[in-house]
Design a protein around this nucleic acid. Structure first.
Lengths: 246, 246
DNA sequence: CGCTCATTGCGTACTCTATACGCAATGCGT
DNA sequence: ACGCATTGCGTATAGAGTACGCAATGAGCG
């Protein structure tokens, strides 16, 4: 399944960066790559990543399963296309915004929204981004720090930190929302109450007893996310002050 | 595939919390759950999660594929057992260690090591932990903050933050190491140099040109991880000081 | 000591997955 | 109008997970 040299990049990247040949001759394509990718994203959104099979995708597009392979090298390539297209354009920033914290917060919240709309993204392997769509998001994140005295290596470190946090928070949230019933977090709290032995897990039992795992009353689900994000950004602030002082 | 009520918890949890019936009568089992799980973990470690199939697992155990289903309800249940067993015991802490930062750093680094030894863990869905193994890790993390003035809700928030970061960093690292060849990150740096247009992605192009994506000379792969972790813990320090002042 | 039956081991079969291969249909360039 | 590159797709293969039911086994009881 691996290529011989091991150095060829996946076919999808060549297409995404506009390196595909125009190939004008021949029969007119009844299917387009955009339609395929859009249908795949819609299918994954509605029924989950597990329901995304080449056969069901073809059924939804009204074509035969094997027709897809004329536009997509395989399922892996299709998922690369999906990762490129689904997030849409990132928020736009100047190359050196005055308010780094506000900008980076907005970036993180919008990325969190992307993951909420497309939960399957966080189930895919997190390979380093190499497509135009994901690199545009990375560019936007780097710009939020353009006005800070942080060196480039630290900026990347900070951006990765935020990315990982957003991804992890979204992953946890969607895995709880995947279960049926109205209150999945409530069910989880009850389960922990039953299971956690205070002798063996004193710290955990204390937290469970305090109702920390129960849904936060009078707070949206975003608020937990924003609280963690703020702790993170406090750390970035410390790094910025330290860099400004030297 | 879903159960009727939707409230039954997975069979694996009943077993893991010692709720299985002794069932003494009958034929002596030639297979044990421990052997199955250990073989599954070894197989996933050696050949990756994609190579873990019930058939290949049975082959390695010298039994028929369907024999596994006497001990495990299905592949999902098997993966629950694997998640419980593979990490091993967490580092032990007092309920209120004097040095929260050192303790939490040690916890994060050891978890990072777990993910490095068992890369398949981060490919599995990140459902909220409910097995003894993962809850023991959560307990250990909570204990590192036992000596701080943080309220319980903030402690959980901090622990989740660290968890997400460790997981994300490990995920990125293993996805780059998965590719063959000696320097996967170097290949990535070259790819970005080719692809990133400075007009469209100025901030990103600057970082690429500065060699930020090339392997850090004179630094182990852990150092990038620790750098990000330190920024994160600076943020936790801010929260602790703020809590101590009120 | 032998019968019983709960329990395990596993053979068979079914559905669903991705996709290699090759032929038929089609429409642009000449 | 013709030729052929290109697309659409039918067929086939190898592998996945697992439902179902019967055969083998051995502990406990009569």
């Amino acid at each position: 399944m691996r290529d011989d040299t091991g150095n060829e990049l996946p076919h999808a990247l060549n297409v995404l960066w506009g390196r595909a040949k125009p190939k004008g001759r021949g029969r007119a394509p009844a299917l387009s790559l955009e339609r395929i990718v859009a249908a795949a994203v819609a299918l994954a959104d509605e029924e989950g990543l597990a329901a995304l099979s080449m056969a069901r995708l073809a059924e939804r597009l009204g074509c035969a399963p094997m027709s897809l392979y004329r536009h997509v090298a395989g399922k892996d390539d299709l998922q690369l296309f999906m990762l490129d297209a689904a997030p849409g354009p990132p928020p736009e920033f100047d190359t050196a915004p005055a308010d780094w914290r506000g900008s980076l917060t907005r970036w993180a919240v919008e990325l969190f929204g992307v993951y909420a709309r497309h939960p399957w993204i966080v189930q895919l392997v997190n390979s380093p981004p190499a497509d135009p769509g994901q690199l545009a998001w990375l560019e936007a994140a780097l710009r939020t720090l353009g006005g800070t005295p942080l060196d480039l290596r630290t900026r990347i470190s900070v951006v990765m930190l935020v990315t990982h946090y957003v991804r992890g928070a979204a992953q946890l949230l969607t895995s709880m929302a995947a279960e049926p019933g109205e209150g999945a977090d409530e069910a989880y709290a009850v389960l922990l109450t039953e299971l956690v032995d205070p002798g063996r897990f004193p710290a955990l039992a204390g937290a469970v007893r305090a109702g920390v795992f129960a849904p936060n009353p009078g707070a949206g689900p975003d608020d937990d996310f924003r609280a963690g994000l703020n702790h993170l950004l406090d750390g970035v602030g410390v790094a910025i002050e330290r860099a400004a002082r030297s």
